[in-house]
Structures are given as C-alpha cells and as structure tokens.
Design a protein around this nucleic acid. Structure first.
Lengths: 135, 135
DNA sequence: CCGTATCCCCTTAGATACTG
DNA sequence: CAGTATCTAAGGGGATACGG
C-alpha cells in the first residue's frame, strides 16, 4: 500500500498567483476536467470502479438510478479520456469488463480529498442553506 | 502563510472501503458537492475570489464570458451554501462586495489538488481523446 | 452600479422499448 | 448480457433589454 501526500499552499495570494492567468481560457485544464467529471454520474462510476473491475450490469446495479443509455454514454466518455478501460470477451453471452486505467486510478486521490472536504463540511453547508432559505 | 497537507490512502481497497456505503445515497455529501460546484462557473468564481474581495462588475469582467444573470445565480447559490459572503454598502451608486467566507477559503485547497491533477494529466487526456476519435 | 426580466436554445438525463 | 433507439422533460446557460 502506498501513501501519497498532497501539499497545498494555503496562503491566499500564493494560491491565487498559481491559479490565475489561464483560468479565463475556456481550454484551461481545470475547466476541462470540471466540465468532464462535473456531470451527474462520472465521479460515481469512477469511485465504484475503484473497488475493481466491474461488468456493465454490475455497474448498472451498483450505481443506483442510472439508466443503461446514460451509463453507456458516461463510460464511453471516461474511456475516451483514458480514465476507464473496456475489455470485451468474445463469449456467449457477451462479457464486458470495465476498469480504471492508471490515469483513472490517479484521480482517486484528488477525488478523495474533495470527498473528505465534503463530509467535513456538509453539515455547515446544510445549516447555511437553512438560514438562507428562511430569510 | 500556512501549509496544509492532504494525506490520502492510495491503496485501492482502502479508498474503496472508505468511499463505499453512502455513495448510492443521492444525498451523499460528495454527490451534493459535485452537483453544486460542477456547474460552469462556480469553481471559476471561487478561484477568482481567492485573490480577495471583488465587486459585481469586477467579477463580471474578470470571469470572462459570464452574463450578469448567470453570474448572479452563481453567486446566490454560493452565498446560500455559505461559501461566499455578500456585503451591500448603502451608497449611491450602489456597491456590493463579494468575498470568500472561511468555509469558502477551505475549499481552495481541495480545488487546487484537482487543478494540479488536471494540469499534470491534461496532455495524457488529450492524447487519449485523439486516439479514441480516429478509431 | 447592480442587478431583473424575457426569450430561446441546447444539452443532459429519464422512461420505455427493443436487438445482436 | 450489453447495449441501442426514440421520445420527452427539465433546466442550465446565452443574448438582449430594461429597472431601482
């Protein structure tokens, strides 16, 4: 098991300086990535595949609520970006295994940072929403 | 200047175990957060405000391409979630200052982790897309 | 200056049915 | 089993104009 550490400068100006400049470019990497994984199912699929290979139907059942059409589109997009691999076995009935690539696995860490932040702060957000909505 | 470190277990199983369980809940924190900052402008606004307070028109000009209606909606949503504060000064002409709250500032780190991943891997993604599209 | 009000488009996604 | 086809609905986002 490997432990990876993300070190982030929290100084506001430092972050700002690091971040500025290309942000207004529509092709800036951050915007592209947010655009891609910001949809409804991509992150969910990635985190489910973090457990290991899954077949189409297994994914459809474990990622609850997704329809086959949308799941297919999500998987194709992830495959196109090189985050997910798709292996078809010439059998009857057909078998298709989906798995994270190395690139896909490298996203788990950053997503987990976001997940940790979300879990730590979701109650604060919820309380803020209540306060806002009554007013 | 403070330095904050994010330590993430990269072992696939460990991450998976940590992540599973509530993911299928539509109200799971991670899904809620992705839903909120996954739109087109929120992350951009947050990172611009990381530099410091900005007025409405300043934001509109620095976040290029956003229309006033959409910017307003984005800011209202961020304010509702407690990530951004809105201060109105009773002056003529009116002055409204937007700034990150403590909660909002605490998001900069995680977003910066994502930004770093994006910049490190965007070329790999682009190459993957080309390979996929010719085939 | 700081927004609202309209109108329109387009994408995303859900429901349902069907096929190699 | 692993998808595709078709239809529809919802809303996010853009353009433009106007108001306190």
């Amino acid at each position: 098991m490997s432990l990876k550490t993300y070190s982030v400068l929290m100084d506001t100006n430092a972050v700002a300086v690091a971040v500025r400049g290309d942000l207004d470019d529509p092709d800036c990497p951050t915007r592209q990535v947010i655009d891609r994984i910001g949809d409804k199912w991509s992150v969910l699929v990635i985190l489910h595949l973090a457990r290991g290979e899954l077949r189409f139907t297994e994914l459809r059942e474990s990622v609850r609520g997704v329809t086959p059409k949308v799941l297919t589109r999500t998987l194709r997009a992830l495959e196109r970006d090189g985050l997910v691999s798709r292996r078809v076995y010439a059998e009857v009935p057909p078998r298709v295994e989906y798995a994270l690539t190395d690139l896909g696995r490298s996203l788990i860490g950053p997503l987990d940072v976001l997940r940790a932040w979300a879990e730590e702060n979701i109650t604060a957000i919820a309380r803020s929403r209540e306060r806002y909505d009554v007013a």
